[in-house]
Design a protein around this nucleic acid. Structure first.
Lengths: 104, 104
DNA sequence: ACAATATGCAGGTAAATGCCTGCATGTCAA
DNA sequence: TTGACATGCAGGCATTTACCTGCATATTGT
């Protein structure tokens, strides 16, 4: 997993919306997705390319159409690597701050 | 929670390293953090400002020093909003793709 | 008080990002 | 086969980002 690509991909509201759209209905074409986006088709394509490079979206050609599918795996890995680590230490970390606020 | 700020903050290797450093030892000063970074102090300051704006880091003044503490809450919220959603549908989403690959 | 230390502020630059338009290619259906 | 449809490619522009340097301010210890 490339954490950098995944976080950068998620760091844009349009791309998060695309993931939401695909979550509602997986396998949509570029055209379908564009109808919900309010930007030029080419801009949407670029966003989808970034999602694909981050492995968050997989595409599949069907004739002249391109179908887009969410790949939930990188998100899971992000969770394992980034969230659980802090989650485990959550109480400790907040405790450190509280101790400082109380004057050591 | 501002998902945009959180993801953008995480979308940079230097800032993720800062979080890792604080995870190892919470409450470090700017100077301490800089020693591990290989960039000008001012650049590190800017990264820390972004982490602070995303509420991932809280600071505390002690004399002329500035102490930095991780705040794990936004990461937890990101997980609740962004990961669990896809996690719940994980098998469904992969199933959609598999079905397409098999020709509907 | 004053020298050393820790951080803040104000630009300035190069590269990356997000958006666009115009044209090209490939596919379907009549 | 040919017109309509779905997508791809190339280039251009404004904004944001990540980095820097130079100087200013605030705190500490002697």
């Amino acid at each position: 997993m490339d954490a950098d690509k995944v976080f950068k991909a998620l760091g844009d509201p349009t791309r998060r919306k695309l993931l939401d759209l695909l979550c509602e209905q997986n396998g949509q074409t570029l055209g379908q997705l564009c109808e919900n986006l309010d930007m030029a088709r080419q801009s949407a394509t670029q966003h989808l390319e970034i999602l694909e490079a981050a492995n968050l979206v997989t595409t599949l050609r069907r004739g002249r159409e391109k179908l887009h599918f969410i790949n939930p795996v990188p998100l899971h890995e992000v969770y394992e690597r980034w969230v659980r680590k802090f989650e485990r230490q959550r109480l400790n970390l907040l405790h450190d701050l509280k101790k400082q606020l109380e004057g050591e």
